[in-house]
Amino acid sequence: MFIPEVRQLATIVDRWWPEVAAFIDTGHSNAESEGINRVIKLVARNAFGFRNNDHQQLRTRCVTTRRARGHLRIAQL
């Protein structure tokens, strides 16, 4: 009677409802940390095969700073 995709969507929404309700109540999410994790994984994939782990860690730290993500704007002189 129901379309299988609709039933699956209802099951997923029901399973995640406490988290959805918490977001609606507070307006907070973990989107920023998830975005940083995505960037770290991307850098790790791009650096695959590099021999120096210290350079890979430094590169990860550099791309995840606030300035690199565009949060800080340098005043134009």
Rank of each mutant, 00 (worst) to 15 (best):
W17A: 04
P18E: 00
D14P: 00
V43H: 00
V39A: 02
Q56E: 09
N53H: 08
I36E: 01
S29V: 02
I40W: 02
W17G: 05
V63A: 13
L42Q: 15
D14F: 05
I74V: 13
I3Q: 11
G35K: 02
Q56W: 05
R61D: 15
T64A: 03
W17V: 00
R66T: 08
T11M: 08
R69G: 05
I24S: 08
P4E: 02
H28T: 14
E19S: 07
R67W: 13
N30R: 11
V39W: 04
R15N: 08
V13P: 01
E5D: 13
T11F: 03
V6W: 01
I3D: 14
N37S: 11
A75D: 09
A47N: 05
T11E: 13
A21D: 09
I40Q: 03
I12M: 04
R69S: 06
I36Q: 04
F23V: 10
S33M: 07
Q76V: 12
R61P: 01
P18W: 03
H55Y: 14
E19P: 00
L42K: 11
L58C: 07
V63C: 13
A75G: 05
R69Q: 15
L77K: 09
R45P: 00
C62L: 15
A22L: 14
T65M: 08
H71Y: 07
I74T: 05
R7G: 09
T26I: 08
F2D: 12
G35H: 03
V20K: 05
W16C: 12
G35S: 00
R66W: 05
E19M: 06
L72I: 15
R7L: 15
P4K: 09
I3R: 12
Q76P: 06
